[in-house]
């Protein structure tokens, strides 16, 4: 107490006499008055700064804790399995997520050539966090085309396709996804989902011999 940027308090530094009194100069005169006033103003400012600093620390801590708690809630709701999904999901949350355009183009090329396994590998590279609805749509479509058959469909591939198209719908704004690609016959995620769902269903139409005439979409 009593010392600061200007040294000790001018009044407190005046020594006491043996009878307990001390000679304090008249405050209204000259440099001594200015010195005392400056000293106390700076001490007041220090106290003020300490209080403000504490408020800033508390406010920043509150913001950080709320952001962290939000990230935890997001994690438990979305159930990411890889670090890429965590970082990509958080980036998508603030609108900063971008897919790799080169890998996506590679995937499209493989997809058009009916190289579905290669296409899915490229699409997975393009969208490692599984946050892009269009990429997930193409992955689902690749499962559909690979699993489609004239006599029967591959249930495992169709099930994977159904999962992916559900993911694409979940990632699309308001759940609506339409892809303008002339190479596709199913342009919306809803159509693709219905097709995959129909392929997994067992009913009397499965025994219709005219099924062999149908075409892959």
């Amino acid at each position: 107490m009593g010392s600061g940027p200007l040294g000790p308090d001018p009044i407190r530094s005046i020594p006491y006499r043996s009878d307990g009194s001390r000679e304090v100069p008249a405050l209204q005169t000259g440099a001594f008055f200015v010195s005392v006033a400056r000293h106390r103003r700076i001490f007041g400012a220090c106290r003020y700064n300490r209080a403000v600093r504490e408020q800033i620390v508390r406010g920043a801590g509150l913001v950080v804790a709320i952001a962290y708690a939000s990230a935890i809630t997001w994690t438990y709701v979305r159930q990411p399995e890889t670090v890429a999904q965590v970082t990509g999901g958080l980036a998508a949350g603030v609108g900063a997520y971008r897919i790799d355009p080169q890998a996506f183009a590679d995937g499209l090329t493989f997809f058009k050539n009916d190289q579905f396994v290669e296409a899915r590998a490229a699409f997975a590279r393009a969208d490692p966090a599984e946050q892009d609805a269009r990429t997930q749509f193409y992955i689902a479509y690749s499962y559909y085309r690979q699993g489609w058959g004239r006599i029967y469909s591959d249930d495992v591939l169709f099930s994977e396709g159904l999962k992916r198209v559900d993911l694409a719908i979940a990632r699309a704004p308001a759940g609506r996804l339409v892809v303008d690609d002339p190479n596709l016959q199913l342009h919306s995620a809803d159509e693709l989902r219905a097709e995959l769902d129909a392929g997994l269903r067992r009913d009397a139409s499965d025994f219709n011999p005219l099924r062999v005439m149908r075409k892959r979409k």
């Binding site: 504490e54 620390v57 508390r58 920043a60 801590g61 509150l62 950080v64 804790a65 962290y68």
Partner: peptide, 11 residues
């Protein structure tokens, strides 16, 4: 301290 209450314990 404010740091412990605002940062260390919650984190």
């Amino acid at each position: 301290s404010a740091v412990r209450e605002a940062f260390i314990l919650p984190l």
